[in-house]
């Protein structure tokens, strides 16, 4: 992949459902190879819609979209986009539709024209790389929430995409699984856009965070000094990290 090259370039892209205010309102986005971008924003600000427009699941009403240096307009163009960009859905039950894990992970490679053997090998390798070895014969609907999420990620990774779009991957995950996801993402040599409400998660997994509201994206670069309130015993007495106290003044 073209490192540091402009990969996804959206100019003045709008989208609206009939009879409602626009969800994406002349949105601009430039995403470069190697970027690991976090995206925050309130519910209904259009984050999921943005992903679906990029993947061609929703049709933008206006604006320009260039992906991998080529204008994307027709249905045909999205075929290639979907091969090279992987989307992880919010709800793992939507993503996992095959009865067994192996079949689900092999589904993408088979669609890309791989043979049965190749697809199987890729699927097993992907599962292994995500620490899911031995999951291949599990029944998808019997997996736990965390397992479903990781297997969903495997189904996307098996397509060997160049970019990942991850839609709230931490919702419903317990702490150990979230930690595991952080480790996996940190170990990936991939560009991605990560939608999450979880700022701690974004700080660990992304290089910069953008903010989406009212259908537009803005880069949130400003450093804002702030204090954390914390609680412990004997906190009423002046001590080191208390600015007003004698120790604080020394610093």
């Amino acid at each position: 992949m073209d490192k540091n090259g402009l990969i996804v370039d959206l100019q003045d892209v709008s989208f609206s459902y009939p009879g409602r205010a626009p969800v994406l309102d002349e949105l601009n986005l430039s995403f470069y190879g190697g970027d690991r971008m976090g995206l925050m924003g309130p519910n209904g600000s259009g984050k999921t819609t943005l992903f679906h427009v990029i993947m061609g699941l929703l049709k933008r009403s206006s604006g320009r979209m260039d992906i991998f240096g080529r204008p994307i307009n027709e249905r045909q163009d999205f075929r290639e986009v979907r091969q090279r960009i992987g989307l992880l859905f919010q709800d793992a039950d939507d993503q996992l539709f095959s009865p067994t894990v192996l079949e689900d992970v092999a589904f993408g490679p088979l669609n890309l024209g791989k043979s049965q053997e190749e697809a199987k090998t890729i699927a097993l390798r992907t599962l292994q790389s995500l620490g899911l070895a031995g999951f291949e014969d599990r029944i998808t609907y019997k997996l736990s929430g965390g397992e479903k999420r990781l297997v969903s990620l495997a189904t996307v990774m098996a397509m060997e995409p160049e970019i990942l779009l991850l839609d709230e991957p931490t919702t419903g995950l317990d702490e150990p699984t979230e930690k595991r996801l952080v480790e996996i993402l940190q170990g990936l040599d991939l560009s991605y856009i990560l939608v999450s409400h979880n700022i701690d998660f974004l700080m660990k997994t992304t290089d910069f965070i953008t903010y989406m509201s009212y259908g537009k994206i803005s880069l949130d670069e400003e450093a804002i000094p702030h204090t954390h309130v914390h609680v412990h015993r004997h906190g009423r007495y002046d001590h080191r990290h208390n600015n007003s106290g004698p120790h604080g003044k020394k610093q």
Binding site: H52, M55, L57, R79, R82, Q83, G86, L87, F89, D91, D93, D94, Q95, F97, L102, E103, A106, F107, G108, L110, N111, L112, Q116, A119, K120, T155, V156, M159
Partner: peptide
């Protein structure tokens, strides 16, 4: 709604109307 989302997820993974089997 679920059917719609599942179909979308399948499209994202290159589905073109054919399911392949891994079994012989």
């Amino acid at each position: 709604d679920r059917a719609q989302r599942v179909h979308n997820a399948m499209l994202c993974r290159g589905f073109r109307g054919k399911l392949y089997s891994l079994r012989q």
